[in-house]
């Protein structure tokens, strides 16, 4: 029983970090129909900047904040300088974002080297609680809380604020939003930077969760995020949340019994969903 609770919390915690990556991917696709193959790079930059700042200042809050800031800045620069030039051309978008993934990934190697680095925890989040024999690791709980709080915040922004209404309207019909006098390009840039910031936060949290960061983590986690959005439905907020938790738990459970098959089972899950419901579990219902 203990083992299962342990696996479950681990799965949900990983799922939450993946959710932060997937939700930006999903909203960006919903709004601008850009499938961002560079999204994992923001995640990786978040992880590296987080670990780096934490190593320098020993302040985890500062590390998370700077990761989010760096993510938002890279996202904004990348969107303004390159992606905004290819809106409407799906082939160029995919080729371009993959190129950005390549460049951003190589730049991580230039700054921090190609080897695996450790990503330490702050002292107050290390260790675990023992509740009547059930062991709960503090940092996992922290990840789940941060993930859930961010999910709630994103949900409230989408549902309750003016910006959220514009984004949801833009998902339905960007031309109409523009016809109503709203500069949709600015909204695009903002949402892209926001998505990149969320991904960077996810990366900064994921680093200490696994304990180590490497230049391959961008692609690996991006792949999981793709599986999540295909399962949940591209462009769906709820879909990315449920999909991420599902993928996280499946990954944790399968890794326990057969570590080699974790990715295979998740991909199989995705293939089954594609066969039964090609638009994903929550696809087609808007954000």
């Amino acid at each position: 029983m203990d083992a299962y609770i342990n696996l479950l919390t681990n799965g949900i915690a990983t799922g939450m970090a993946i959710f932060l990556l997937a939700v930006g991917l999903s909203i960006i696709f919903g709004l601008m129909s850009v499938l961002n193959f560079a999204h994992g790079a923001f995640f990786m930059w978040g992880a590296y900047v987080g670990a780096w700042i934490f190593g320098l200042t020993k302040s985890f809050t500062l590390a998370l904040t700077s990761a989010v800031l760096v993510g938002a800045i890279i996202g904004l620069v990348v969107e303004r300088s390159t992606i905004s030039r290819v809106y409407g051309n799906h082939v160029s978008q995919m080729l371009l974002t993959m190129g950005l993934m390549l460049v951003l990934g190589e730049m991580v190697k230039v700054f921090w080297g190609p080897n695996i680095l450790t990503s330490p925890l702050p002292a107050y989040l290390a260790g675990s609680w023992d509740l009547n024999g059930v062991i709960i690791i503090k940092y996992r709980l922290f990840t789940i809380i941060v993930g859930a709080a961010t999910a709630l915040a994103v949900y409230l922004i989408l549902k309750r604020t003016r910006l959220g209404i514009i984004v949801r309207a833009g998902v339905e019909n960007p031309e109409m939003v523009q016809a109503l006098g709203i500069d949709i390009r600015k909204v695009f840039s903002l949402v892209f930077a926001f998505g990149a910031a969320l991904a960077a936060l996810g990366g900064a949290i994921m680093g200490p969760l696994g304990g180590s960061i490497s230049p391959t983590m961008g692609l690996e986690n991006q792949l999981l995020a793709f599986i999540v959005v295909v399962i949940g439905g591209l462009g769906s907020f709820i879909g990315s949340l449920i999909g991420a938790i599902l993928v996280g738990i499946t990954g944790a459970l399968v890794s326990w019994f057969l570590p080699e098959a974790a990715l295979a089972v998740n991909i199989l899950l995705m293939a089954v969903v594609l066969l039964l419901r090609p638009t994903g579990l929550f696809g087609g219902s808007g954000l």
Binding site: H90, V230, P278
Partner: peptide, 28 residues
């Protein structure tokens, strides 16, 4: 047949996923 019926972005994602799967299999 898994991905070409849906939007064009799906083919790119699914080929990427399966290529990674084969890579992991070859490594493991």
């Amino acid at each position: 047949s898994l991905s070409l019926r849906i939007r064009d972005a799906y083919f790119a994602m699914i080929t990427l996923a399966f290529a990674e799967l084969f890579l992991v299999a070859a490594l493991k």
